[in-house]
Design a protein around this nucleic acid. Sequence first.
DNA 1: GTGAAAGCGCTAACAC
DNA 2: GTGTTAGCGCTTTCAC
Lengths: 330, 330
Amino acid sequence: MTTIRDVAKHANVSAATVSRVLNKKGYVSKEAEEAVLTAIKELNFRPNAVARTLYNKSSRMIGLIVPDITNPFFPELARAVEDVALTYGYTVVLCNADGNVEKEHNYIEALKQKYVDGIILTTNQLSFSDEEEVGVPMVALDRIIGSKIPTVVSSNEEGGAAAARHLIENGCRFLAHLRGPKGLATAEDRLSGFRKVVEQSGVANVIVEADFHFEKSEQVTAKLLEHHPTIDGIFASSDVSAAGAIKAATAMGKKVPDDLQVIGFDGIPFGEMLVPSLTTIAQPIYKMGAMAARLLIKLIENKPLERFYYELPTELIKRQTTRRKEENNE
Amino acid sequence: MTTIRDVAKHANVSAATVSRVLNKKGYVSKEAEEAVLTAIKELNFRPNAVARTLYNKSSRMIGLIVPDITNPFFPELARAVEDVALTYGYTVVLCNADGNVEKEHNYIEALKQKYVDGIILTTNQLSFSDEEEVGVPMVALDRIIGSKIPTVVSSNEEGGAAAARHLIENGCRFLAHLRGPKGLATAEDRLSGFRKVVEQSGVANVIVEADFHFEKSEQVTAKLLEHHPTIDGIFASSDVSAAGAIKAATAMGKKVPDDLQVIGFDGIPFGEMLVPSLTTIAQPIYKMGAMAARLLIKLIENKPLERFYYELPTELIKRQTTRRKEENNE
DNA sequence: GTGAAAGCGCTAACAC
DNA sequence: GTGTTAGCGCTTTCAC
């Protein structure tokens, strides 16, 4: 491995001078600079990032802690984070914490020991009190952790409301909501938006737990439709959950959207690939990830944040699993 | 930050002794050890990973370079790599190279500068001659890079053959293959397996490019079915591609599997969520990732590898997009 | 058994 | 402008 001292010798200057031209800091004469530059080329020198990190206490790495990259919501988020990180010269360390508090803690410790400059958390659990000083810049993504930690979410409550509105406007008269995990703020908000609209309009409704989970949604929907055959609209709290509902309904001989309309939540690419394609409340997933990354980098660089809470709008994407009922029009 | 010297002072020993107990290396008296251990507890000392890395030239990190984590084949692979890495005390740095040679090179350089212990490559391109010394342990995953780099793939050719066989056995008489990107070994192998079976059995067939891509598959299938309305079986080179084919066929009024049978390749969870659920040639994705990670760690630890080429079997998973044609039975 | 000292490769005071 | 030096926090010879 060639070091800064090798370069220095080769260019007949001192290590300090080489460091100066590398970091474009301090005065260096034109001649010295050129000598160093050519020496660097000739020796194919690359500065050792670890030595730099040790001195600077900054690794230009950020940690991204997700519950499970296998959950189709997260790859796009991760991609956005990575893209922005790359732009600013950071690399990202991926951690799957499975919503496990201990695993998450261990990751945070391990990341700190590596001098990561910041951490993006998209975890299920509140794994530590927000007041507790973590000692490293953090931002929360798609999860609300505490008032001290900058947060990026989408408008889950309004999204839930929009979903209910859409089904009702389409003529549905008995709605079901396949809700997400209890205690998870995003799931609670979607439920709350749904509930408000449904109560206001006086439409019959049931709410059941489905945990964002495909098989569980399938099972739960099967039972639900058995007990309440007149359900004609389902709002699933994730697109994967919606797919489970559609599968169960189809297996029982119900036609989507004719007998039963279904709307999901998330807007992952997979919804478009279903037949019929899935109507959904889309979150701006990539934007959320990118924004979280940008906020984190601002935090790292001690730049001022305008706010600590960013709520990005969701959008109703009408596709084929919902349709205005003709017979209800005059 | 508390350092090894703080601990040393607190325990009335030298830094060297602390280091010895930290690494369980060299002789340390029982008393000294205990004193150090309690000092560590009391001061809540955590060794600085970067300082260690600088000295040891090993970061206990591995780089994972994928084309795009957003492609649903890769999250499971990444998860497997991360799980195994965690088991052995490694963390993983995620890099999306977009099949871009330059990006990939930059990543490799950046990773080396960080003293990563090894790299797993799942890239589209051969980005450098295999002979060229990269200077860091590497393994290739789902891609064949060169004879010197240990490789993990699944049996793509046999999988392609099995797909063709399945369609033919089911009574299809005119097959189409939506092939993957030209020049990509896995895609070529699937094609080659398909072709062998089809030629041997003398079944009519067409081959078109679809690039593993949903929209492209949809468009290409629409054209294909227009020109060749009697096509009754499609082998798509990825599950996403199969979804595109199904969508196009359905849009044209064809019923799957009655009018047209479709089989995919990959075995990603998404295939099960489709209605009808997707018959596919499943790769053992998690296993492949886990094996690659284990091989890499062996390489890192200078343990002997049994082989340099591991081909894991694919498996036909029969679901609802294919079905034996009754009218063809006697 | 244990400590002093050197050094991993880099940066930043502080001289000159 | 440039070099010398100390030091980031750890590990490891080499004395004792």
